[in-house]
Measured scan of single mutants.
Amino acid sequence: GATAVSEWTERKTADGKTYYYNNRTLESTWEKPQELK
């Protein structure tokens, strides 16, 4: 079946920190989402 992984995108802030952005829920998080573990 379909997985939720594609909803999350790994992004970088202007100062180079990595965060994760969810295209479906429009939420962002510093922690790696469960779906990516």
Score class of each variant (00 low, 15 high):
Gly1Trp: 11
Gly1Leu: 14
Gly1Asn: 14
Ala2Tyr: 10
Ala2Asn: 13
Ala2Met: 14
Ala2Phe: 12
Ala2Glu: 13
Thr3Pro: 12
Thr3Phe: 10
Thr3Gly: 13
Ala4Ile: 14
Ala4Val: 15
Ala4Pro: 13
Ala4Glu: 12
Val5Cys: 09
Val5Ser: 13
Val5Asn: 12
Val5Arg: 07
Val5Asp: 12
Val5Trp: 12
Val5Gln: 14
Ser6Asn: 13
Ser6Ile: 10
Ser6Gly: 13
Glu7Pro: 06
Glu7His: 08
Glu7Arg: 03
Glu7Ala: 06
Glu7Tyr: 08
Glu7Cys: 13
Trp8Leu: 01
Trp8Tyr: 02
Trp8Lys: 00
Trp8Ala: 00
Trp8Ser: 00
Thr9Gln: 14
Thr9Tyr: 08
Thr9Pro: 00
Thr9Ser: 12
Glu10Ile: 10
Glu10Val: 10
Glu10Asp: 03
Arg11His: 11
Arg11Val: 11
Arg11Trp: 07
Lys12Arg: 12
Lys12Gln: 12
Lys12Leu: 11
Lys12His: 10
Lys12Met: 13
Thr13Asn: 07
Thr13Trp: 03
Ala14Phe: 09
Ala14Leu: 10
Ala14Ser: 11
Ala14Glu: 11
Asp15Phe: 06
Asp15Met: 05
Gly16Val: 00
Gly16Ile: 00
Gly16Thr: 00
Lys17Ser: 07
Lys17Ile: 10
Lys17Thr: 09
Thr18Phe: 05
Thr18Leu: 09
Thr18Met: 06
Thr18Ile: 14
Tyr19Pro: 01
Tyr19His: 02
Tyr19Arg: 02
Tyr19Glu: 04
Tyr20Trp: 15
Tyr20Phe: 08
Tyr21Thr: 05
Asn22Gln: 01
Asn22Trp: 01
Asn22Asp: 01
Asn22Val: 00
Asn23Glu: 14
Asn23Ala: 10
Asn23Val: 15
Asn23Leu: 15
Arg24Val: 12
Arg24Asn: 07
Arg24Ser: 07
Arg24Gln: 08
Arg24Ala: 08
Arg24Trp: 09
Thr25Ala: 01
Thr25Trp: 01
Thr25Pro: 00
Thr25Met: 01
Thr25Ser: 04
Thr25His: 01
Glu27Tyr: 04
Glu27Asp: 05
Glu27Thr: 07
Glu27Ser: 05
Glu27Gln: 12
Ser28Thr: 15
Ser28Leu: 14
Trp30Glu: 05
Trp30Gln: 04
Trp30Pro: 04
Trp30Val: 05
Glu31Lys: 07
Glu31Ala: 08
Glu31Ile: 14
Lys32Met: 12
Lys32Leu: 10
Lys32Glu: 08
Lys32Asp: 04
Pro33Met: 02
Pro33His: 02
Pro33Tyr: 01
Pro33Asn: 02
Gln34Lys: 10
Gln34Ala: 14
Glu35Gly: 09
Glu35Gln: 09
Glu35Leu: 07
Glu35Tyr: 06
Glu35Pro: 06
Glu35Ile: 06
Leu36Ser: 06
Leu36Gln: 06
Leu36Gly: 07
Leu36Tyr: 11
Leu36Lys: 04
Lys37Asp: 14
Lys37Asn: 14
Lys37Glu: 14
Lys37Tyr: 14
